[in-house]
Computed example of a mutant assay.
Amino acid sequence: MVIGFIIGCEIAFWIVLAAGLVLRYPLRRPWAGAVVLAAVPVVDLVLLVACAADLRGGATAGSRHALAALYLGFSLAFGHSMVRWADVRFAHRFAGGPKPQKPTDKRAHEWRLFGLAAIAWALTCAFLGAGIWWIGDPARTAALKAGAGQVSVVLVIWFVVGPLLTSNTSGRKQSTSKTKRR
């Protein structure tokens, strides 16, 4: 049931996002589009209620519940920037808005994304911790505890392949270009 809700919520996120942007730009109904876009977090609330109901019904917390916490954490942390990303592209395509710009400073962009990932990590761990506390039975929450460790590993990997690697490559490119000028 929970996996179905995760998949359904992901699909619903994109449907609600697309509906809001279609109302806002091609149909020229900005107020209606804003109302629909404001409903995007309701999708996350549906998943949260579904997981809580499943656990309250006596289910042992499994990897599916940890995945739901991860989905919620990342959706809350990255949701606004994903809506903004799509909004800029719709505005350009349907309303004569400016062309979307690529990040000019790759290092700053990677640090910004890592910051959002750190927020997602914190939210995910908070959801997992709340589930552990709410259920109150270590035998039924082992998967949630393991999920916190797994998402922590993901954050470390993100740091290494994101800001750390980008900072090192940017530094090499700058020193190489300085050497070529001499």
Results as ranks from 00 to 15, higher is better:
Met1Arg: 07
Gly4Asn: 10
Phe5Pro: 09
Cys9Met: 13
Cys9Phe: 14
Ile11Tyr: 13
Ala12Ser: 13
Gly20Trp: 12
Val22His: 14
Val22Lys: 08
Leu23Ala: 13
Arg24Leu: 09
Arg24His: 15
Tyr25Gln: 12
Pro26Thr: 07
Pro26Trp: 11
Leu27Thr: 05
Pro30Arg: 07
Val35His: 11
Leu37Thr: 13
Leu37Cys: 14
Ala38Gly: 15
Val42Ile: 14
Val43Thr: 12
Leu45Glu: 09
Val46Lys: 07
Val46Leu: 13
Leu48Thr: 11
Val49Glu: 13
Cys51Thr: 15
Ala52Arg: 05
Ala52Met: 03
Asp54Pro: 02
Leu55Gln: 01
Ala59Gln: 03
Arg64Ala: 11
His65Thr: 08
His65Asp: 15
Leu67His: 05
Gly73Leu: 01
Gly73Thr: 03
Ser75Cys: 04
Ser75Glu: 01
Ala77Asn: 02
Phe78Lys: 02
Met82Val: 04
Ala86His: 11
Ala86Met: 14
Ala86Thr: 12
Ala91Gly: 09
Ala91Lys: 09
His92Val: 00
Phe94Trp: 15
Phe94Met: 08
Gly97Ala: 04
Pro98Glu: 14
Pro100Glu: 09
Pro100Gly: 06
Pro103Val: 02
Asp105Glu: 13
Lys106Ser: 09
Trp111Pro: 02
Trp111Thr: 03
Trp111Ala: 04
Leu113Val: 00
Gly115Met: 01
Leu116Val: 00
Leu116Tyr: 13
Ala117Met: 04
Ala118Pro: 06
Ile119Trp: 11
Ala120Asp: 08
Leu123Asn: 00
Thr124Gly: 06
Cys125Tyr: 06
Ala126His: 04
Phe127Gly: 02
Phe127Asp: 01
Gly136His: 03
Asp137Cys: 00
Ala139Trp: 12
Ala139Thr: 15
Arg140Ile: 00
Arg140Val: 02
Ala142Ser: 14
Ala143Lys: 00
Lys145His: 15
Ala146Pro: 03
Gly147Val: 05
Gly147Cys: 00
Gly147Ile: 04
Gly149Asn: 01
Gly149Gln: 00
Gln150Ile: 10
Ser152Val: 08
Leu155Asp: 12
Leu155Thr: 12
Ile157Met: 00
Phe159Trp: 15
Val160Pro: 04
Val161Arg: 07
Gly162Asp: 12
Pro163Thr: 06
Pro163Met: 05
Leu164Ile: 11
Leu164Asn: 08
Thr166Pro: 08
Ser167Tyr: 10
Ser167Pro: 08
Asn168Gln: 10
Ser170Val: 01
Ser170Gln: 05
Gly171Thr: 06
Gly171Arg: 02
Arg172Val: 13
Lys173Tyr: 13
Lys173Met: 12
Gln174Cys: 00
Ser175Thr: 13
Lys178Asn: 01
Lys178Glu: 15
Thr179Val: 00
Lys180Pro: 07
Arg181Ala: 07
